[in-house]
């Protein structure tokens, strides 16, 4: 094997090593823990193999945690709540993000860079700080309420914070760039001649959008939606800081099981189910990406 071959193998193997180290091994560990029983010890769960016991009894695994998840309504409710919030946040991000991405893609190059810079700008400030800033804006004696009170539009301060509204606001605000950037990338690539051609063949502006722009931006819509949906589903910080007590999303439940109850096996089972819920949209994503590369070749 010459040096080139070695190098090529190294380049091919590296990402797999990376995946193995930082994804597959931790996943295996969590999966393993999810089949254990909680105990008061360090670590707080029974091990899968116990070589001190007799050979027939050295392996121990249980599905109790999964059974418990199905039995207790709390988990089903928080999964559904998370799905609902992630889904509607994704829709909102799409509704807000599409026109923004479209405008940026059609702007002159100077403006385009300026807008892109503005979209990325919030990332320069810690995510946590930005969520705290929203607390300041939304709280009962925050910026919005004070403003509305001072101009006499309301008598009593509005309950904006600790509601579903504030959770949606926080998620849409935080994840909007992840929707805009892939949409922009797709829209900027579109040949504007295609729009002109459709108009030339008799399509009015809205029809041109429906027949040409929208179908050709589907890859961007899908990647943007997944980039918002996946992290929003497991989001912990935003519902914890901006959400009310009833907005129990699965991230929060997971946190409570791990750190509040120290029930690592149950928490692991929660995490595994969450992962399975994410695998489905990710496979859809993969499918479309493959199809898109197919078409370009």
């Amino acid at each position: 094997m010459n040096r080139d071959d070695l190098w090529r193998r190294f380049v091919i193997v590296t990402p797999y090593l990376w995946l193995l180290m930082f994804f597959l091994i931790p996943f295996g560990l969590v999966l393993k823990i999810s089949f254990a029983d909680p105990i008061v010890a360090m670590p707080p769960f029974t091990s899968l193999f116990d070589f001190n016991k007799a050979p027939g009894e050295s392996f121990y695994a249980t599905l109790d945690n999964y059974r418990f998840l199905l039995k207790d309504d709390l988990y089903r409710i928080s999964y559904l709540k998370s799905l609902k919030i992630a889904f509607f946040s994704t829709c909102l991000c799409l509704l807000v993000g599409y026109p923004i991405a479209y405008a940026i893609a059609r702007a002159s190059p100077v403006w385009r860079n300026m807008f892109l810079f503005l979209i990325i700008l919030p990332f320069w400030i810690s995510f946590l700080l930005r969520v705290y800033a929203w607390m300041g804006i939304l709280s009962t004696n925050g910026v919005i309420n004070n403003l509305l009170l001072s101009i006499g539009l309301i008598e009593q301060p509005l309950q904006l914070l600790y509601t579903d509204f504030s959770v949606y606001l926080g998620i849409v605000y935080s994840y909007l760039p992840f929707m805009v950037l892939p949409l922009y990338a797709t829209l900027a690539k579109l040949d504007f001649d295609l729009n002109d051609a459709a108009a030339d063949l008799g399509a009015k502006p809205l029809t041109v959008f429906r027949d040409v722009t929208l179908p050709l931006s589907i890859p961007g819509i899908i990647s943007g939606s997944l980039l918002v949906f996946i992290p929003a589903l497991g989001e912990f910080v935003i519902p914890a800081l901006l959400g009310g007590l009833d907005s129990l999303m699965i991230g929060r439940t997971l946190y409570d099981e791990f750190f509040g109850n120290r029930d690592w096996p149950l928490a692991s089972a929660v995490a595994i189910i969450l992962l399975l819920m994410l695998v489905v949209p990710m496979m859809v994503f993969q499918h479309y990406q493959l199809r898109e590369t197919d078409q370009r070749e």
Binding site: A197, A198, D200, L201, G202, A203, P215
Partner: peptide, 27 residues
Amino acid sequence: PYERPVNMMFQSYAVFPHMTVEKNVAY
């Protein structure tokens, strides 16, 4: 343009990439 009795063939051809040949012509 959508009301003119004129049609254009673009320098880039601007054939709709997401439609079949037939759909392109029928558009």
